[in-house]
């Protein structure tokens, strides 16, 4: 009797682990449900036009936050995203837009951000603006950033490092935490690109 009780206590369910969807349809990124419209971004784009997510409807948009003087996280993120676009077929890549929003509006001018992003992929568009505009964008997207001042007076910024995946309809579908390889982005982008 004691054996039966102990076995019952330890035993899990009798079925193998189930997944909510077939493996091919599962995102590598974290997914949000129900899908809601992506938060607003009211900034100046480094392509000379205002950033308005409605402008990119029909495309898959990747949004990330960072700054051009970032020495650790941002170069890796941007190189990963550039690598992912290169792995897509040209027609697919043309339907993917990367938006990189600064968390350092005091230093990241439109020209500075444009130069920086072009070193990774000239199609990337930076989002710049006033401190108030950047603060509003960060609040809408749940982005945190902390300014750390060095002994020499220079500063660096710790910031949220996830990448947000927006579908063709403008819905915020998924969030890829920092550190995933470009193949994971390719996998998820292909799912989103299939959804017309």
């Amino acid at each position: 009797m004691l054996t039966v009780m102990l076995l019952a206590a330890f035993a899990g369910a009798a079925e193998p682990p189930k997944l909510a969807a077939p493996p091919g349809d599962l995102f590598k990124a974290g997914t949000l449900s129900p899908v809601m419209p992506a938060p607003a971004l009211e900034l100046q784009g480094t392509d000379g036009k205002p950033i308005d997510l409605a402008r990119y409807e029909g495309k898959v948009v990747l949004v990330a936050f960072g700054f051009s003087n970032c020495g650790e996280v941002c170069p890796i993120t941007l190189a990963t995203l550039a690598g992912a676009r290169k792995k897509l077929a040209p027609a697919e890549a043309a339907d993917v837009q990367v938006l990189y929003v600064t968390v350092d509006p005091e230093r990241d001018t439109e020209a500075q951000m444009k130069r920086y992003l072009a070193t990774f992929d000239p199609t990337f568009i930076g989002g710049v603006g006033t401190r108030a505009q950047i603060d509003a964008a960060q609040k809408n997207w749940g982005i945190s950033s902390t300014k750390n001042v060095n002994a020499d007076g220079s500063h660096t910024i710790g910031h949220s490092s996830s990448i947000y995946l927006i579908d063709r309809q403008g819905g915020l579908r998924a969030v890829m935490p920092y550190g995933h390889p470009s193949d994971d982005f390719v996998h998820d982008l292909k799912i989103l690109l299939r959804g017309r």
């Binding site: 974290g30 997914t31 949000l32 129900p34 749940g142 945190s144 949220s160 996830s162």
Partner: peptide, 28 residues
């Protein structure tokens, strides 16, 4: 809305985050 790590979750929303490697992750 609640912020969990990489994302903001609106009221009534769920966030499904898969992991595929051994790791220790710190989230806000």
């Amino acid at each position: 809305p609640q912020v969990f790590g990489p994302t903001i979750m609106m009221p009534g929303q769920s966030f499904r985050l898969p992991f595929d490697r051994v790791s220790e992750n710190q989230f806000t």
